[in-house]
Amino acid sequence: MSRPDPRTAQRPPDSLFTLVTDQWTQPYWDAAAQGKLVAAKCENCVTFRMPPTPFCPQCRSQQIDWIELPGTATLYSHTVVERAILLELADCIPYVPAVVEPDGAPGIRIITNIVESSIEDIVSGAKLSVLFDPVEGGAIPRFRIVKDAK
C-alpha cells in the first residue's frame, strides 16, 4: 500500500528543543549524552515506566533502577510530516515523529524520530536501532531503520 518514496527522513530542527530536566528525568539525558539508551524501572515492583515520573504508578515507590537497554526497538506508529507548521521546520521536510517500543523494557514507549532512513522503508513493525544526535547540553536518542532485520 505504500508508494515508492526514496526521500530520506530529515531531522527536526534543534531550535525547537530546549533540554529541561528535573531530578527524575536527568539520568535519562545524562545517559543519552554518553551514548546510552536507558529506561526507568521501579526498584520495588520492577515495572518499567517512561517518562520517569516521581512515582511508580503500580506501587507509588520512588526508588528507580536505571536500566541500560540494548538500543534496538520496534516501530509502533509514526507520521510523515509533509508541511512545515512553523517556519523553523521548512528545511526539515519530511521528518518523521515516531512512537517506538524499545527492546529490554516491556510495556514502555519512547517518542522519537526515525532518521537516516528512506520514507518507503518506514512501516509499522520495522526493526530499529538507536543513534544519538548531539544537541546543546546533551544528545537526543533517535532511531534508524535496520533494513536486514525485517
Binding site: 527536526p12 530542527p13 525547537l16 528543543f17 530546549t18 533540554l19 529541561v20 530536566t21 528535573d22 527524575w24 528525568t25 517518562p51 515520573t53 510530516v81 507548521i85 512553523l86 521546520l89 526539515c92 521528518y95 515523529p97 515516531a98 519512547i110 517518542i111 522519537t112 524520530n113 544537541v135 537526543i140
Partner: peptide, 12 residues
C-alpha cells in the same frame, strides 16, 4: 521535563 520528549521529536 516531560514536554522535551515530544518537543525533541518535532511534534509541534
Amino acid at each position: 521535563p516531560e514536554s522535551v520528549f515530544y518537543q525533541s521529536a518535532g511534534l509541534a
